[in-house]
Simulated assay, not measured.
Amino acid sequence: MKKTIVLAIFTLQGNGAERFALTLAKGLIDAGHEAHIVYFKNIIDLPIPEGVKLHFFDYQKYRAIPKFMRSGIAAKAFDKFVLKNIGTPDLVLSNLLPVDFILSKSQLPNVHLVIHNTTSLEYGERLEGMRKELTKIYLAKPCVAVSQGVEKDFIEVFGRKSKITTIYNPIDVKQVVSTASEYVPDIDTPYIVNVGKFKQQKRHDVLIKAYAKANVQEKLVLVGTGELLEASQRLVKELGIEDKVVFTGFKKNPYPYMKHAKFMVLSSDFEGLGLVILESLALGTPVISTDCPSGPNEILPSDCLVKPGDISALSDKISAYSQQTDNNPVRLDRKFLPDYAASQYLDLII
């Protein structure tokens, strides 16, 4: 029987949660169901799969309402918007805190909040000050973690009353592979690549220092933008490696850079799952990653992992991968494919 699934997200800019929503929506459509994405801010940077229906819920006008009243009022408006434009959904999946804040008060059936990151590390020192508010949000609805590590951390933060299960983020291998052939990056090969937003979590400083210490021939290509981009550029200049590091800026389609790289490096302090790892493996590109909470060690074997923040260990691993000619990538497990994820999400429907 055909089901109607709503995925709610703040914007459709190029980050992991947004790509997850689009990939899962396509997987649900391929399985014969109806997928609708409701987005709160009118920014679309990502290609929309055929058949996915988009709906813009203008959240901006609710931001003037005091916060203690806002979630209830906006949730009623969201519910009314969905019922009018889509009908009664069989499943609603909320993504990221600004949307979770609203949908925790939704009265629509089968609302689940998808937890994309390791809660304790995402909020860090702010957690204690936000614990009461976050507990109200994340114990109000059942939740879905994108990795076992995220689920374990969630329970440690919110306690035994937590209603959470794990469904791994899916990767659309066919779409990634076909999109990766759209162009060839104008960069001398071989090179090392990192794709990610320039923010503290991603630890570009650790990657840049480890790369400089490794002193390998391959260039380092950094794909992305963010608030720490200029700091990273300054660090590259201080280390005297401007001629070896390429900053590409944001790329709507980063897959050609991943496809043509000798290997990918992820240097994060924490992840939810590490979608770029799955994307690289789908393209046959080997990956080195920090063994951060959480996700990478649920995808990669231990010999591909190093301790987070350990510049020397990461440098040694970069040197070793640079010298090898047979860095065979890990094969993707079926649990990371869209049809498998779609079936697990459909099982949440009561």
Rank of each mutant, 00 (worst) to 15 (best):
9 I>C: 12
10 F>M: 15
14 G>E: 09
17 A>N: 03
22 L>N: 02
23 T>G: 08
27 G>D: 09
31 A>F: 06
32 G>K: 03
35 A>F: 10
37 I>W: 05
43 I>R: 06
44 I>R: 09
51 G>H: 09
52 V>S: 13
59 Y>S: 09
60 Q>V: 03
63 R>E: 15
65 I>R: 14
69 M>H: 11
69 M>G: 11
70 R>K: 14
72 G>W: 14
83 L>W: 02
84 K>V: 11
85 N>Q: 12
91 L>Y: 02
94 S>G: 14
95 N>F: 07
96 L>T: 08
104 S>C: 13
106 S>I: 10
106 S>R: 09
117 N>I: 09
117 N>E: 15
121 L>R: 14
129 G>H: 07
130 M>A: 14
131 R>I: 12
132 K>N: 15
133 E>A: 15
133 E>C: 12
134 L>Q: 01
136 K>V: 05
138 Y>I: 12
140 A>E: 08
144 V>W: 06
144 V>D: 07
145 A>L: 13
146 V>W: 02
147 S>L: 08
150 V>E: 10
152 K>V: 14
155 I>M: 06
159 G>I: 10
161 K>C: 08
162 S>L: 11
164 I>P: 05
166 T>H: 07
171 I>W: 03
180 A>G: 07
181 S>P: 05
185 P>R: 03
191 Y>S: 00
194 N>E: 10
199 K>H: 12
199 K>M: 13
202 K>A: 03
202 K>T: 07
202 K>W: 07
203 R>T: 01
207 L>F: 11
208 I>A: 04
218 E>W: 00
222 L>I: 07
224 G>T: 03
230 E>L: 11
234 R>C: 06
235 L>I: 10
235 L>S: 10
242 E>D: 12
245 V>M: 03
245 V>G: 01
247 F>A: 10
247 F>S: 04
251 K>L: 13
251 K>N: 12
252 K>M: 08
255 Y>N: 10
267 S>H: 06
268 S>I: 01
269 D>Y: 12
272 G>Q: 04
273 L>M: 10
274 G>H: 00
275 L>H: 05
276 V>K: 10
276 V>P: 12
284 G>H: 02
286 P>W: 00
286 P>E: 01
289 S>V: 09
294 S>P: 05
296 P>L: 05
298 E>F: 11
300 L>M: 06
305 L>R: 10
306 V>A: 04
311 I>H: 03
312 S>I: 10
313 A>W: 00
313 A>V: 00
315 S>Q: 00
316 D>S: 10
318 I>C: 00
324 Q>A: 07
329 P>D: 05
329 P>S: 08
330 V>A: 04
332 L>T: 03
338 P>R: 05
339 D>P: 11
343 S>N: 13
345 Y>I: 04
347 D>L: 12
349 I>G: 12
